[in-house]
């Protein structure tokens, strides 16, 4: 039996993250990064937004969106460094930085989504 490698699991997480990012990020970013700042759409009221965020379903979906998208980005960026800049030889440094960053980001997302006042 081949020694167990992390690659298949990383790829599954990468794929899941890709799906979440593709389905959810365009509309969320259009809304909060472009339309509301530019005044195309009125910003939702503080009370309403907080109400939506507080809901456990929202928190769950957002947690999966954030953590999986970060892992997706980390996995893809790791391979971009290998292929675009030929940095395979640095992979002992690249792997911890990429996935470590994704894990830190996911923990932060969990913290932000869990502790709401």
């Amino acid at each position: 039996m081949a020694k167990r490698s992390l690659e298949p699991f990383l790829w599954l997480l990468f794929s899941a993250g890709g799906v979440f990012a593709a389905l959810l990020l365009p509309s969320l970013l259009f809304l909060f990064a472009i339309a509301v700042p530019l005044g195309w759409l009125a910003p939702p009221s503080y009370e309403h937004l907080l109400g939506v965020l507080r809901h456990p379903l929202t928190r769950t979906v957002l947690f999966f969106l954030c953590s999986l998208s970060l892992i997706h980005g980390a996995h893809r960026f790791r391979y971009t460094l290998y292929e675009g800049l030929r940095m395979q030889h640095l992979n002992e440094v690249i792997v911890p930085i990429c996935y470590g960053g994704a894990i830190v980001g996911s923990l932060w997302a969990g913290y932000v989504l869990l502790y709401m006042r």
Binding site: F32, L53, S69, G73, R76, T80, V112, M116
Partner: peptide, 23 residues
């Protein structure tokens, strides 16, 4: 492949927003 960086930034931006609202 470079879109990966911007996906990550998008997530961070949204988390900053969520933090601002829910802190």
């Amino acid at each position: 492949e470079l879109s990966s960086i911007f996906v990550a930034w998008g997530v961070i931006y949204l988390l900053l927003l969520i933090r601002a609202v829910s802190r």
